[in-house]
Simulated assay, not measured.
Amino acid sequence: MSVTAADIKKLRDMTGAGMMDCKKALNESAGDFDKAIEVLRLKGQKVSAKRAENEANEGAVIALVSEDKTRGVIVKLSSETDFVSKNQGFVDGVNAIAEAALKTFPASKEELMEAATATGTVASALNDLVTKFTEKMELSYERLEAAVVAPYIHMGNKAGVIVGLSAAGDAAYEAGRDVAMQVAAMKPVAVDKDGVDQSIIDKEIEIGIELARKEGKPENLLDKIAKGKLNKFFKDNTLLNQAFVKDSKQNIAGYLNSVEKGLTVTDFKHVTLG
């Protein structure tokens, strides 16, 4: 059958794919729109494979919490260029995936790919975005559950944070928002020193010993000096021990306790582009 300009435009409006790609897909599928969409999706898969070696350091990060504020998710979809990451259609697509993640709250990215969206599954939505924008895209996913979960999205969807707190309530939620902004600004590696990976601790001690040795400190004191530097590392790089950016006279632990006695952070997730 003959493919008309109206058919091509209709398929383009449905998929966002290029005019020539739509024309080829319609010709290949003998004018069947469902089959043409599948052709375009297959093309999207081929695009993704072809560009597998490309870097995807742009994109969008979306953080959402449930209506009762007890669950939160972060979805990051990386792209190759900021031209794509700033496109509203792309951002809307990432939002749709994040909403599916929040609704179904899957335990893993693999389960998220099977989650339902308004038009199919996350896997098909992702493939549609690849087809539309013809760039390599990579999906990341984090989730968190707590008495209260508070979100923060950095300007331009460049980073997303969700913070879980130990108690519910409006005051705790607002404090959580402050702490989420703290995480985005100060990039802690863990909630407190007990959450720091042993490999990081070992590396910091090793660095501390070498620095002390270069400063000419006695060999028998190197380990003690390095452990002192490690305590400084914990103060600067663990969330509860960091100075509060809104009031440097107190740390995050003290700030939360001032909001509600015993209030603390149970966990956080921080996802950034790049």
Results as ranks from 00 to 15, higher is better:
3 V>H: 10
5 A>H: 00
7 D>M: 14
17 A>L: 11
18 G>M: 13
19 M>Q: 05
20 M>K: 11
21 D>F: 07
22 C>W: 11
23 K>H: 11
23 K>G: 13
28 E>Y: 14
29 S>I: 10
32 D>N: 15
34 D>I: 04
35 K>S: 12
36 A>M: 14
44 G>V: 01
44 G>I: 00
50 K>I: 04
51 R>E: 13
52 A>T: 11
57 N>M: 05
58 E>K: 08
61 V>W: 11
64 L>R: 05
73 V>C: 02
78 S>H: 08
79 S>G: 03
82 D>F: 01
84 V>E: 12
86 K>R: 15
99 E>D: 03
99 E>Y: 00
106 P>E: 08
106 P>I: 09
108 S>H: 15
108 S>D: 15
111 E>Q: 13
113 M>T: 09
113 M>E: 15
113 M>I: 06
114 E>G: 03
115 A>C: 10
116 A>R: 03
117 T>N: 05
117 T>D: 04
121 T>L: 07
121 T>N: 05
122 V>A: 04
126 L>T: 04
126 L>E: 11
127 N>S: 14
127 N>Q: 14
128 D>M: 05
128 D>G: 02
128 D>A: 09
129 L>W: 07
132 K>W: 00
132 K>Y: 02
136 K>F: 06
138 E>A: 01
139 L>R: 12
149 V>S: 03
152 Y>F: 15
153 I>N: 09
155 M>T: 15
158 K>M: 05
160 G>D: 12
161 V>Y: 06
161 V>R: 09
170 D>Q: 13
171 A>S: 12
175 A>G: 12
182 Q>S: 07
183 V>Q: 09
187 K>C: 10
188 P>V: 03
192 D>L: 00
198 Q>R: 05
201 I>M: 03
209 I>C: 02
209 I>S: 03
210 E>F: 05
210 E>Q: 15
212 A>P: 04
219 E>W: 01
224 K>H: 06
225 I>A: 00
225 I>T: 05
228 G>T: 10
231 N>G: 07
233 F>D: 09
239 L>T: 06
244 F>H: 09
244 F>E: 12
250 Q>W: 13
250 Q>T: 12
250 Q>I: 10
251 N>R: 02
255 Y>V: 09
258 S>E: 00
268 F>H: 03
270 H>S: 13
273 L>C: 08
274 G>Q: 07
274 G>T: 04
